[in-house]
C-alpha cells in the first residue's frame, strides 16, 4: 500500500470519531463561559465608558461576586464622579461632538456609527430630547459571532438637555445581546456647586443586569456545541491541508526516487 493509501484510511477513521459531549459545567474563572461573559460585558462597557481603564476591574470583581449566588437576576451598580474644569456649556457641546471628531474617531475606532434616530425640542421649557443609535464593532471569538449572529452591537442613547436649569442627562442601554446581559450607563452633567460658571461635575452610574442562570446554562450548552462543530470543521480543513501536503510529497518523492 502506498503512503497515500495509508493517509486515506486514517481520514475515514477520523470521520467516524464521535467527539464526547462535555456534560459537566462549572463557573470557574477559567471556564469559557466566564470569559465569554466578561467579554460581553466589557464590550458593552466600551459604548461610552467615559472613564477608561476601570471596566475590566469592575467586571472581574463583579463576576466573581455574582456567580457565587443563585439569584434569578443579578444587578450591580457602580457610580463615579469627575470634575471638568470647563464650563457646563463647553462640556455638553463636547459631549455632542465626541464621536464625530476625527481625532476621537481614531481612538474610539470601535464606534462604527452614531446616528440620531429622533429629536424633540420643547420650545416652551427649553428642553431638548434626543435618541441616538450607537453601533459598536465587536470583533471577538468566533463562537460569539456564531451565537449572536453578528459582530456588531447596537446601543441606544437617550439624552435630555435642560438649558434653563443647565443640566444634561444621558442614558445608554444595549439593544443587542439583551437576552444575556443588560448594561445601562447613566451620565449627568451639572455645573459644579463650588464653581458653577467655570466647572462641570459629571456623575456616572453603571448598572449591569445578568439574566437568570438557567439562561446562562443553556447558553453554555450552545457555546459548547458550537465549539464542537467548529472543531470538527477545522479538523476537516486540517485534513484537507494534510492531504494536499502528502500528495505534494508523494509527487516529489516519486520524481526524485526517494520515498518519504
Amino acid at each position: 500500500m502506498s503512503v497515500n493509501g495509508v493517509i486515506t484510511e486514517t481520514v475515514i477513521e477520523h470521520r467516524t470519531t464521535q467527539f464526547p459531549k462535555i456534560k459537566r459545567f462549572s463557573f470557574s474563572s477559567n471556564s469559557p463561559l466566564f470569559r465569554f461573559l466578561s467579554y460581553l460585558i466589557s464590550l458593552l462597557f466600551r459604548t461610552g465608558f467615559r472613564f477608561p481603564g476601570q471596566g475590566a476591574f469592575i467586571l472581574i470583581s463583579f463576576l466573581r461576586d455574582s456567580f457565587g449566588q443563585t439569584q434569578a437576576t443579578m444587578v450591580k451598580a457602580y457610580s463615579q464622579e469627575h470634575t471638568y474644569k470647563h464650563p457646563w456649556e463647553r462640556v455638553t457641546s463636547a459631549s455632542w461632538r465626541k464621536f464625530a471628531d476625527p481625532e476621537n474617531k481614531r481612538i474610539l475606532s470601535h464606534i462604527l456609527e452614531v446616528d440620531t434616530l429622533n429629536h424633540n425640542l420643547d420650545s416652551k421649557s427649553g428642553k431638548l430630547y434626543t435618541t441616538r443609535a450607537i453601533t459598536i464593532h465587536a470583533p471577538g471569538p468566533w463562537f460569539l459571532r456564531k451565537i449572536v449572529g453578528q459582530d456588531i452591537c447596537h446601543c441606544v442613547e437617550s439624552t435630555v438637555v435642560d438649558a434653563k436649569t443647565r443640566s444634561m442627562q444621558l442614558a445608554t442601554k444595549n439593544i443587542s445581546l439583551q437576552k444575556y446581559v443588560e448594561v445601562e450607563e447613566k451620565i449627568r452633567y451639572d455645573p459644579h456647586p463650588e464653581n458653577p460658571n467655570e466647572w462641570t461635575i459629571c456623575r456616572q452610574e453603571t448598572s449591569i443586569r445578568i439574566k437568570p442562570l438557567s439562561t446562562l446554562a443553556s447558553m453554555a450548552e450552545k457555546i459548547e456545541q458550537k465549539c464542537v462543530d467548529k472543531f470538527q470543521q477545522n479538523s476537516a480543513k486540517g485534513r484537507e491541508v494534510m492531504e494536499r501536503m502528502c500528495k505534494y510529497l508523494e509527487a516529489e518523492s516519486s520524481s526524485r526516487g526517494i520515498s518519504v
Binding site: D115, L117, N118, S176
Partner: peptide, 28 residues
Amino acid sequence: LSKHLEDKNLSRFLEAEGVKRIPAPIAK
C-alpha cells in the same frame, strides 16, 4: 436612515417620533 436602517430594534426608535424618553434622574 429610514431606508437604510436594517436593524428592527433601531427602526422602532426611528418610527416613534416625538416620544420623550426621559432617563431616570440620578440623585443629586
